[in-house]
């Protein structure tokens, strides 16, 4: 990290930390939405950006997490934040189960399959599967989250919960990117045959990243359920998956900062221009098209990993 980027990061963190003190509840709520989408986009970035697996059904895993949390909370009175690990497990294992037979598919084929999966999930939720999802009305009456006896109620409080989780996620995913696991994902993205031929167990890494990305989306779903207190299938439509896909590609697949920036633009800008009502989506669509023409690699494209050669040859510190 050079001087400029460390300064930019420090400034961003400082601004985000004090932002709720100066903004009204509506604007804080917009930031909360951005945080949730940022979280989802970061988890999709692992699958799509780092490993290059075309997943356009991410909303399905988001929904699995949200519904797991909502059902456990409303039926069994389990505090909503306690359901985080369970939502992660349910979404993660669901992803493993659906990905196992299809993960060997390439690019566009996998894309179609994931769209199918997300539609199946959405329609199953609408049709009240097992009589626990509440059908098209969804589930309401989800209790407010509690942290050490403090009930999180106002947008300002949710702001710190959501963005705290985003910060934790960024830290973790940046570490992951530097690890052997992260390297394996990048090799996989660049050339699967060459990776397999160089001793990378491609099937294992593909499944692992699918499970991990989905588990994270599941936890984002829990936060969403806690924030809304009502969830219904329409929150997890195909459009959500498309928006997430767009955020990752627009931001620069594989770049954490780029993905966050894109979350701000894609979710934040339409909110800021609400007074233009329907024209804003027209402008938004045009911006998308221009963007892909002039900068197809994304706002902040992923950089190659840098090695210091002295370090490599002296210590032999390959990771």
């Amino acid at each position: 990290m050079n001087r400029f980027t460390s300064f930019a990061v420090a400034l961003f963190v400082a601004l985000m930390a004090v932002a709720p003190l100066f903004l009204n509840a509506y604007h804080v709520d917009v930031l909360n939405s951005i945080g949730l989408y940022g979280l989802l986009a970061l988890s999709l970035n692992l699958i799509l950006g780092e490993a290059g697996l075309f997943n356009m059904g991410h909303a399905a895993f988001y929904a699995m997490g949200a519904y797991t949390a909502a059902i456990l909370n409303t039926r069994y009175q389990i505090p909503i934040l306690w359901t985080l690990p369970l939502s992660a497990l349910v979404a993660g294992f669901f992803a493993l189960a659906v990905a196992r037979p299809v993960v060997h598919l390439r690019g566009d084929y996998l894309l179609i399959v994931t769209i199918g999966v997300s539609e199946i999930v959405r329609i199953a939720l609408v049709n009240d599967v097992f009589g626990i999802t509440g059908g098209a009305n969804g589930i309401f009456g989800i209790s407010r989250p509690e942290l050490f006896g403090f009930v999180i109620r106002q947008p300002q409080h949710f702001y710190y919960l959501i963005w705290g989780f985003v910060a934790f996620t960024i830290f973790l995913f940046l570490r992951l990117k530097q690890s052997r696991f992260g390297r394996a994902l990048n090799y996989l993205r660049e050339d699967e045959v060459a990776a397999e031929g160089s001793g990378v167990n491609t099937d294992y890494y593909k499944l692992a990243v699918f499970g991990l990305g989905a588990a994270w989306a599941g936890m984002a779903g829990t936060l969403f359920a806690a924030k809304m207190t009502i969830i219904s299938p329409e929150s997890f439509s195909f459009w959500e998956s498309v928006v997430l896909f767009m955020i990752v590609i627009l931001g620069g697949a594989g770049n954490v900062a780029g993905v966050l920036l894109a979350a701000f633009l894609v979710i934040g800008l339409p909110e800021l221009f609400r007074e233009f009502s329907s024209a804003r989506m027209l402008v938004f669509g045009l911006v998308m098209m221009v963007m892909m023409l002039v900068r197809p690699q994304g706002l902040l494209p992923a950089k190659s990993r840098q090695f210091s050669f002295a370090e490599l040859s002296n210590k032999g510190s390959f990771r």
């Binding site: 390297r183 390959f318 990771r319």
Partner: peptide
């Protein structure tokens, strides 16, 4: 089948993935 978007060094370090 080298990795065109990665550096020479990164390509070599992939080769040592099993090591």
């Amino acid at each position: 089948r080298i990795f065109g978007t990665l550096t020479v060094q990164e390509n070599l370090s992939l080769g040592a993935f099993t090591q």
